[in-house]
Simulated scan of single mutants.
Amino acid sequence: MKSASPLPSFGRDMSESSSIPRHIAIIMDGNGRWAKERGKPRISGHRAGAESVRECVEGCKQLGVEFLTLYAFSSENWNRPAAEITALMALLERFLEEKAGELMEQNVRLQAIGHLERLPVRTRRKLDKAIERTSGNTSLTLILALSYGAREEIVEAARSLAADAVAGKIDPAKIDNATFASRLYTAEIPDPDLLIRTSGELRVSNFLLWQISYAEIVIFKKFWPDFHQADLNEAVEEYSRRHRRFGGL
């Protein structure tokens, strides 16, 4: 499984003006540096960051946001030390076990995108169980980007279209933006309206490269464990002050 299962269509036009973003995507950066500043092991930063995830989910639900995508583990993260990866997977498993009940109580649906087959068997099993358990929820949809890389996603979409073209299933001349987007992991998910990044870094780090083409970007200098619901509200307030032109006047 590399993509999220089909999601309901809410029928909102991209050009519709709204002070609340329909979809927020977040690059949760700075866990390791947060821990280092405090003389703690890196994994303690990741544990602290889990609390920020909880606040963000609750905040999005209260604001009426429909989709929240969190960059939880990139394809490049597999290059980290084995001990840190093992600890991160254990933390993910713990999150899935402890938070699934809360997601049910809050009517939050869990989804995941990325090369999920690369996850450890036990981790993948717990992820699939949480996704299945929350599949009927109809409020906020929480999407975890796990073992995810946007360049890989785009290349795979191109390969899929090329294979269909060679097989005569599709006319290359008729491939447009919508056709291409339909082959991405996020085919049934609307593009993010707002991209938030913590730690002050000014880059998108191979995250949803196609999907964030017209997203408004808000950067916070603070590290992810220090990101709280008030910061989320601040980002949404900043978003509401901007005029989205989508390339027009």
Rank of each mutant, 00 (worst) to 15 (best):
S52E: 04
L91F: 11
K129N: 10
L110S: 05
Q229L: 03
D226T: 10
P225R: 11
I196W: 07
L195I: 00
I27K: 05
L91E: 08
M1T: 10
I20T: 06
S135V: 04
G11Y: 12
R245T: 08
P192C: 03
A162P: 07
E76A: 08
E37R: 15
R125W: 13
A112Y: 07
S18L: 04
S75M: 15
P120H: 09
F73N: 04
N77V: 10
A230L: 04
A82L: 14
G49K: 07
R12K: 10
E105I: 13
A25T: 11
A25P: 07
L63H: 01
E105H: 04
R118I: 05
Y185P: 06
L140G: 03
A130V: 11
T134W: 13
N137V: 15
F67S: 07
F220C: 05
I189W: 00
A165T: 06
R183I: 13
M28T: 09
F10A: 04
R241W: 14
L92T: 06
L7M: 07
R124Q: 15
I196F: 06
L194D: 02
D13G: 11
R118Q: 11
R12Y: 05
K129D: 13
T123F: 10
L91Y: 03
V108Q: 02
S213R: 13
A165E: 00
V236T: 06
A162R: 11
G49L: 07
Q211N: 13
R125Y: 11
T198W: 04
Q62P: 01
G114S: 06
N107T: 00
V65W: 01
R122Q: 15
N107M: 06
R203L: 02
N177L: 14
A215M: 06
K169L: 06
W34T: 10
P172Y: 07
R245N: 09
E156F: 14
H115A: 12
A178K: 14
L140S: 03
F67I: 01
Q106P: 00
S160N: 11
K221C: 00
A112E: 02
K174T: 13
A82W: 01
K174H: 12
S3P: 00
H23F: 12
I131C: 14
F207N: 01
I189M: 12
C56N: 05
K2R: 13
A82I: 13
F95L: 15
A167G: 02
K99G: 10
I196T: 05
I219K: 00
V155P: 06
R80K: 12
L202H: 07
R38M: 03
E237V: 11
L195R: 04
K40M: 15
Y214N: 10
S52K: 12
A165M: 08
W34A: 06
R124M: 14
A87Y: 07
R159C: 09
G39T: 03
L91C: 07
I219A: 08
G136M: 04
W210G: 05
R118Y: 13
D164E: 15
S205T: 00
N77F: 08
E153V: 03
K222D: 07
F95I: 14
S17P: 00
L92R: 05
P41Y: 15
S9I: 15
